[in-house]
Simulated scan of single mutants.
Amino acid sequence: MENEIRDFILYLHEEKKTSVNTELSYKRDLQKLQSFLSGQGIEDVGRITETSLNSYVLYLEKNQFAPATVSRHIAAVKAFFHFMLKKGMVSEDVTERLKAPKIEKKAPEVLTVEEAARLLEQPGKDAPKDIRDKAMLELLYATGIRVSELISLKLSDLNLRLGYIICRDGMKERAVPFGNKAKEALTLYLKEAREQLTKGNEGDTLFVNCSGKPMSRQGFWKLIKIYARKAGIEADITPHTLRHSFAAHLVENGADLHSVQEMMGHSDISSTQVYANRNGNQLRNVYQRTHPRSR
C-alpha cells in the first residue's frame, strides 16, 4: 500500500496541483489507514474490503476522533480509491457506500469590532519587534488571510502603492486588498524595523523573527495569545479568529458573499455562507429582544 500512497500523492501534486498542506494531510491520513490495515493482516490494496474500511471508521470513532476528523479521513480514503480505480490498480470502488458522520456546523468564533481594535492597539510603537507585530496583526485583520499565508509572504508579494498582497496556495494565487491602517503599519515596518531584524541579511521573506529568520506559525500563535491577554479578551482566540472576524465584519457591513469568498480563498461558497448565517442569527436575536410584538 505504501507504493500506491506515494503514487497518489504524486498524482495530487502533478495533476491536481494541490497545496503542500493538502498533500501532507492526505498522506498522514492514509498512513494511519495503512497502519490499521497492517494490524489486521491486510498489506495489499486488492484485499481491502468495504467491511475492513467500516472497521477502520469504527476504530476512529471508538478512539474518540472528532466527527470532522473522521470525515476528513473518509474523504482521503475515497479520493485514494477513486485514484486507484482510475489508474486500474483496483477493480472496484469499495468506498462507494462509506458514509461520513454528520457534522454540526458551529458558528465561527469572532471578535467584536471593539475587541479587534483593542487587540491591534496592543503592540508597542518603538521596538522593531513591536512594529513588526503591529504590521502582522493589522495585515491579518485587513485581509483575512491564513496565518500560513501570512508567514509565507515575500516582499515581492506586497504592493504598497496599490494596497494589495498576492497569496499563493499550491498553484493557485489570489490578490487581496488592504486598507490604510495596514498600509501605515507595513510602511513603518519596512522603513524602521525589518532591516534591524534581518541584521542586514539578504532575503525576500516579508516577516522575520528576532534572529532574522522567517516567522513560524508557533511563534505567531504565541504572540497573538499574549496580545489577547493584554487586551483583556477572555475568549481563547487563535490566529484564525482574526480571519473569521475579518469575514464576519465584512458581511455585517454589507459585503457580498462572492467577494468575501474570493478574498478568503474559499473554493466553495458554503464555507463563506456561515458568516451570512451568523449575521442572520444576530439580526433575529436582536429582533426577538427588541420588537414589542416578537413574542
Score class of each variant (00 low, 15 high):
148 S>A: 11
150 L>A: 04
152 S>T: 09
152 S>Y: 00
152 S>I: 07
153 L>I: 06
154 K>A: 00
155 L>M: 07
156 S>C: 04
157 D>C: 09
158 L>V: 14
159 N>L: 08
161 R>S: 15
162 L>A: 11
162 L>F: 11
164 Y>C: 14
164 Y>S: 15
165 I>P: 10
165 I>G: 05
165 I>V: 15
168 R>P: 06
169 D>V: 12
169 D>R: 10
172 K>R: 12
172 K>P: 10
172 K>Q: 10
173 E>P: 08
175 A>G: 05
176 V>S: 04
177 P>Q: 05
178 F>T: 03
178 F>C: 03
180 N>W: 01
181 K>R: 05
181 K>W: 03
182 A>N: 08
182 A>I: 12
184 E>P: 07
185 A>R: 04
186 L>W: 05
187 T>S: 13
188 L>V: 12
189 Y>R: 07
189 Y>S: 15
190 L>F: 14
193 A>I: 08
193 A>T: 07
195 E>W: 04
196 Q>I: 15
198 T>V: 14
203 G>C: 11
204 D>A: 13
205 T>W: 01
206 L>Q: 10
206 L>A: 09
207 F>A: 05
207 F>Q: 11
208 V>H: 14
208 V>N: 13
209 N>M: 09
210 C>K: 06
210 C>Y: 06
211 S>G: 09
214 P>M: 11
214 P>C: 12
216 S>G: 14
218 Q>G: 15
219 G>N: 07
219 G>M: 07
220 F>C: 10
221 W>D: 15
221 W>E: 15
225 K>M: 07
226 I>Y: 01
227 Y>R: 00
229 R>A: 13
231 A>R: 00
234 E>C: 10
236 D>C: 09
239 P>A: 02
245 S>T: 10
245 S>W: 01
246 F>G: 06
246 F>S: 08
247 A>V: 03
250 L>E: 09
251 V>P: 12
251 V>L: 09
252 E>F: 01
253 N>I: 13
254 G>V: 13
254 G>Q: 08
254 G>S: 12
255 A>V: 14
255 A>T: 14
259 S>I: 15
261 Q>C: 12
261 Q>S: 11
263 M>Q: 02
265 G>R: 01
266 H>R: 01
266 H>Q: 02
267 S>N: 01
